[in-house]
Design a protein around this nucleic acid. Structure first.
Lengths: 217, 217
DNA sequence: ACCTATTTTCGAACATGTTCAATATTGTTT
DNA sequence: AAACAATATTGAACATGTTCGAAAATAGGT
């Protein structure tokens, strides 16, 4: 088992390192095999698809995101502030890969892909990602209507996915626009959330929650 | 010029027909060339990329969307109702391609792809798509704050892109959930919009518009 | 009609993700 | 230790998007 684990680990490490250094497209299976001193076929013995190697990278970045968030939350108890932290830490964690983000996105977006954020194959990484936003909500002292509070982590994660999509297309220096968007959106969220408790917000809010119920099977 | 146009048209038609019948992945350049009675190299003389052929399909679907919307608007003057019509017609227009939507999506999503909805190469089709939502707004008698009204078509188009993304992943019978989402979202929009005129909505609304200003370079 | 430049067409070649049958290695049983 | 079963490993082969240099067709000018 050890030999097998070794080979697997060698492939994983080589692939991740190559993804970081060369990006998605430039990282070919043949190159990985060569650098890991194995044959092409052997790589496919452990990973059925190139995208399954991306999955490994995804996991690592996800772990990094969680770590960064934990380090940055500090004593913040305001949801909006915590959301801002979570979003910005997410951008920090993915930052090194922005140059080849397009390649990764194309690989990830297809529902049949192993790395599709919505697919079954990435239930693990996804749960990890939603966990971040669960902590955003749980660690806050802001009053949030119960029905909304339950759905919120997943909704915020979805918003984060949207931000990531924006980020991929963001060519501004250091992706400054994405950061500004993260800050602005968090702030807006902080402004709007209290309004949810006002009486005439009940109608729209219930409509929104019902909408989510329809959308989530 | 006529001979050239003929070849180009033959390729376009063959490709679109193949996309419809076989989907994205199963449509290979060699197959198109064979069915169009030309060589592979010749296809590449007219279309630098397979995705440029998808672009042609995109244009056609876009035109179909616009037609359907015109036929369906009727005498509706309510923004929410018109939005619902636009969204549902969009789903109708793309319906035939749902089976291979994943392939198309993967091809379209990369910023460097010719068919990326946000890229420069598809400025034409995109303008056409936004035009639909321009008409949603222009043909309505609903009172909308001016600053918002100006941004609305683009925002609604963005929402439509989101709906399309949901639709790609939607495996429900006839994509019923996507349709329900379209209806529900339109309705919610109709409920929320009037609230934008209330005094305390001014703050969040301005924040939102500022956010858009930041996000749009 | 002939020559030249441009446009169009061809098909072989290349790179890369993936598959597969054959071979080697390791583990288990007797 | 020998025989058998399982697990690992290999490298060639395949499909497909794309490139490229050469050949053919066409257009324009004299």
């Amino acid at each position: 088992m050890s030999k097998s684990d070794d080979t697997r680990a060698k492939i994983t490490e080589t692939a991740i390192e190559s993804f970081r250094a060369r990006g998605y497209d430039q990282t070919t299976i043949r190159l990985i095999a060569q650098e890991a001193d194995i044959s092409v076929g052997n790589a496919y013995y452990y990973f059925p698809t190139k995208n399954h190697l991306v999955q490994e990278l995804y996991l690592r970045v996800q772990g990094d995101h969680l770590e960064r968030v934990h380090a940055a939350f500090g004593t913040s108890t305001d949801v909006a502030k915590r959301l801002e932290i979570a979003l910005l830490c997410g951008l920090d964690a993915t930052g090194p890969y922005h140059d080849s983000a397009a390649g990764f996105l194309a690989a990830a977006i297809s529902p049949t892909s192993a790395v599709s954020p919505f697919g079954a194959d990435s239930a693990g990484p996804r749960a990890m990602a939603i966990e971040v936003f669960q902590e955003v909500v749980d660690g806050s002292t802001t009053a949030i209507p119960g029905a909304l509070k339950r759905q919120l982590p997943e909704l915020l994660w979805l918003a984060y996915m949207g931000l990531t999509l924006f980020w991929v297309y963001d060519t501004s220096e250091g992706q400054a626009r994405s950061r500004a968007l993260a800050r602005g959106a968090s702030q807006l969220f902080g402004t709007v959330l209290p309004l949810a408790r006002l009486p005439f917000a009940r109608g729209p809010l219930n409509q929104l929650l019902e909408l989510i119920r329809v959308a989530r099977p």
